[in-house]
Every structure is written in C-alpha cells, then in structure tokens.
C-alpha cells in the first residue's frame, strides 16, 4: 500500500542460468490503477566467456564473500583490465548500498589494469545474499558490466541460510 506521494523500491532479481546473448525481460506490475499493467524492462547480454570480454576483463567476474567460520570476511578486491586502445572512465550505475559499497577506479588506462574493492556494510556481514553491481565505461557505446556478488554464511552450529536469488524465490 502506497500513500499518495510515497515511493517504494521494487527489486528485480534475474538468474542468468545458461542463457546466452541478449536477454530482455518485462515484469508486469498489477495495481489498483487498473489495466493496462505498468512494466519495467531489464536488458542483459549474457556471456559464456566472461574471461574474454571487450573492452574490459573483470577478474574475478563473480565475487563471493561466503563465510564458513567465525572470521568475518567483509572485503574482496577485483581487477578491471582495459584491453582496448583508449583510456576508459568507469562510473557506478547500480549498487546495493544496504549490503556493500563499491570502490571503483575512476579511469583505467589503455592496456592497463586497475583495482577495485567491495566492502560489506554492517548489515551485509550479517546475512546471506545474492546481489550485484553495474558500472558503465566511457567508450563510444557506453558499455556496461554487471558483477554478481554472493554471500553465504555458515558458522559452526548454525544452519546455513541460502542466499536469496539462488533458490527458487523471486526469480524472473
């Protein structure tokens, strides 16, 4: 229920499974406004060789901060290698600020590699989740890359809670 003038967030979770190439999904939102339903649209280009993308290669291309003991694992580093011939500015487009913060290099020079860091928030350290962040490059087409971020917690004596989005709930 949304009062007049209020706003809310709708999280769309998409499991890329073994899809290939460009995918487009249009989840529909039914409200008491009546038909036609409003839609949101998500677009993704799913790659089966994420270790050979262009103009950048991200390593690792999936970030896993799973924790199987008492030691809190709250930070992971990754690299962005520019395999093109032009310097590329990097800007964050979408992130899950409740769960983690992402520190991206401002620019990755042609042929060089720069490092980024993902740090879990206090809330992010306490739960299992499967989210992602998306950044955009300054090349002619404004290429975008999305990096999945997963965390599963299993501490001795505590039953593991599956990361949301890795089960059957909320998939689109």
């Amino acid at each position: 229920m949304l009062a007049v003038g209020d706003s809310t967030r709708l999280e769309i979770i998409f499991d890329t499974k073994q899809y290939r190439s460009r995918m487009e999904k249009r989840p529909r939102i039914q409200t008491n406004e009546g038909p036609p339903d409003k839609t949101v649209r998500i677009i993704a280009t799913i790659v089966d060789r994420p270790d050979s993308t262009y103009p950048v290669i991200i390593k690792p291309y999936k970030l896993d901060l799973s924790q199987f003991g008492d030691d809190v694992r709250d930070q992971v580093k990754f690299t962005i290698s520019n395999v093109s011939e032009e310097d590329l500015a990097v800007t964050l487009q979408s992130s899950k600020k409740d769960y983690f913060t992402v520190d991206l290099p401002k620019v990755v020079k042609a042929g060089q590699t720069a490092e980024g860091t993902l740090t879990l928030t206090d809330m992010g350290t306490k739960i299992s989740f499967a989210k992602s962040f998306t950044f955009q490059l300054s090349d002619m087409t404004g290429s975008r890359f999305t990096v999945p971020v997963k965390r599963t917690m299993r501490t001795p004596g505590v039953q593991a809670t599956p990361a949301k989005g890795y089960g059957d709930q909320g998939k689109h």
Partner: peptide, 10 residues
C-alpha cells in the same frame, strides 16, 4: 545490466 556472466543472480 550490460555484460553479465552465466549462472549468476543479478
């Protein structure tokens, strides 16, 4: 989302 790896939740 741009480029996304397979078998991942975004």
């Amino acid at each position: 989302f741009g480029f996304v790896p397979q078998h991942a939740s975004i």
